[in-house]
Design a protein around this nucleic acid. Structure first.
Lengths: 179, 179
DNA sequence: GCATGGTGGTTGAGTGTTCAACCAGAGTAG
DNA sequence: CTACTCTGGTTGAACACTCAACCACCATGC
């Protein structure tokens, strides 16, 4: 194990400020949505994706990808939202394993009612605070981090799967560096 | 209810990229820590705060503030970490309501072992990807958002408390705008 | 036809967080 | 001292998420 590349003081300041900002922002929007619309942020994002999809229908699998959530998580969430009458499950005729999630009119009303408060909270917390230049940079930075992380995700999954498979065989290098 | 100030197309792109980046980054560090150190990110941050505090002790209340978590959450977390032997509770002699959380040697070892992998993951996902200028900007942006949100938090708490109090009285306007 | 492996999705148990209720000690007023 | 409120902290139930196991179905192969 080589000497870890610790963060410099400047980097650490940036990282902490970032964590604080993200944490507070998340908490803020989360409680805002929970309190005014009675739904967690994760559900909100599911409804948004559905509402923007043609015919307001999506395959569960695509919906999971679009909301960056696990199949399991989405399945649980859809179950809850079905109970609330926001979403309806529908079988896929061509692939009998598949399932569609269908946004109901009630569900559309729910998100239509939730959206203004949410976007206002986001605007007040982010876009009203930053200069146009900062907003532009935030976009660039976010895209860079996102795109840098995307391949890593699939890679990590693969590594864990392999590591699981040959757990019995010799595991010479389990330093587990993600690089 | 006035017409909501929707996000422009550009703003929406930035916001989505930001959400995606944050989501993926969080998921990445979360699973990394969980898998390599057996602790969620929230516990990691608690241990970091404790390890940096003089004598590795903190009042529960201060620790909650430092980690931006609720008292309840911290209390549950400390209970778990006590079971793992990472933290020890201690009574406060001067204020008998109070409690200290004390980082144990075992706890210090745990975080010392967890840190290199975590910082490597953060560096690879963020600082290796961004230019020096972008890092500087990210710091500024984060500070702006954080500082803009800090007063809002206390304000929201106050508003909810009031709103709760006069819930029986005339509740003519429950549009609940956060501004 | 029958295996074999991969995919789409669900389920249940375990873990972490939230929310509201609660308790005990401190602070203040009468 | 009594009463009232506020503060520091804990608790239990409800909720959300994760993880591993699982089932049903498609897709190959033989």
């Amino acid at each position: 194990m080589d000497e870890p590349r610790w963060l410099s003081d400047d980097e650490q300041r940036v990282w902490r400020a970032f964590r604080e900002a993200v944490g507070m922002l998340n908490a803020h929007t989360e409680t805002q949505l929970q309190h005014e619309a009675g739904m967690p942020q994760a559900y909100y994002e599911v409804l948004v994706q559905l509402s923007e999809s043609p015919d307001r229908v999506m395959r569960m699998s695509d919906l999971a990808i679009a909301t960056r959530s696990s199949r399991s998580r989405l399945s649980h969430a859809v179950t809850k939202m079905e109970e609330k009458g926001w979403v309806r499950r529908e079988a896929c005729p061509t692939d009998k394993r598949g399932a569609f999630a269908h946004l109901t009119p009630t569900g559309f009303e729910a998100i239509a009612a939730a959206a203004p408060g949410h976007v206002e909270a986001v605007r007040a917390a982010v876009f009203d605070q930053l200069t146009a230049e900062q907003v532009r940079m935030l976009g660039e930075i976010s895209e860079t981090i996102r795109d840098g992380l995307a391949p890593r995700c699939t890679e990590v999954e693969r590594r864990l799967a392999v590591e699981d498979a040959d757990a019995t065989a010799g595991d010479g290098d389990d330093t587990g560096r993600a690089a």
